[in-house]
């Protein structure tokens, strides 16, 4: 069995990482979960993560947000540090919500938003989180609205149960296969994880 470190910005990204590792399945499991404290924490601890990745695989997800392209972000974060082979530094284009929307069928089923209202290319959205919230605001089921949207007049951007509801979706109806077809960054993350497993298996 290969234990793997998962470092993410938030609970939702962690749920996705869990799914990825679970689907890769064969002899991989999450050994330690790190992060959940936003991207500043990930950036600050990057050196420690690279150190860990010399002996144990590390899967790190960070949102691209408004930065132009992943390579700019990576160069900015990495500086002169060289990532070991087992460091999977994956950039989510542009926010983790894009990967959720990428499974249009699953998201439609979960949220009640009509299938053809969900964008075909979620990675081209400038703010996928905002798009997700707006879709739910306009077309969502009541139960999903209550969880995900803030109450009327609230200063909060999201509902109290935003993470709980969307994590539930990721753990349940969300299909990695369908999502990977519409989100290139997800597909690549999945492929790299797969390759890593094969390399590790070869070494053994």
């Amino acid at each position: 069995m290969t234990g793997i470190f998962v470092a993410t910005e938030d609970v939702l990204s962690e749920a996705i990482a869990d799914r990825l590792i679970k689907e890769e399945n064969q002899s991989m499991y999450v050994a330690v979960r790190l992060g959940r404290k936003g991207n500043t924490y990930l950036k600050k601890e990057l050196r420690s993560f690279t150190k860990i990745a010399r002996s144990v695989p590390v899967l790190l997800f960070t949102d691209l947000d408004r930065i132009e392209c992943p390579s700019i972000l990576i160069n900015d974060w990495r500086g002169r540090v060289i990532f070991p082979e087992m460091m999977l530094f994956r950039v989510v284009v542009r926010k983790i919500e894009a990967w959720l929307l990428a499974d249009r069928q699953g998201f439609a089923q979960f949220s009640g938003v009509p299938f053809n209202r969900i964008p075909q290319h979620p990675e081209s959205l400038s703010d996928p989180k905002e798009s997700l919230l707006n879709l739910v605001r306009h077309y969502g089921k009541k139960a999903v609205k209550v969880d995900i949207l803030p109450e009327r007049g609230s200063t909060a951007k999201i509902g109290l149960a935003y993470n709980q509801a969307l994590c539930g979706f990721v753990q349940g109806a969300w299909s990695l296969d369908r999502a990977a077809q519409a989100a290139n960054s997800l597909d690549r993350a999945r492929r790299r994880l797969h390759e890593l497993r094969l390399t590790l298996a070869d070494k053994k």
Binding site: P150, G153, S154, A156, I158, G159, L160
Partner: peptide, 8 residues
């Protein structure tokens, strides 16, 4: 830490 908490 829940970001859904209303500042008011």
């Amino acid at each position: 830490s829940n970001k859904g908490i209303d500042a008011r």
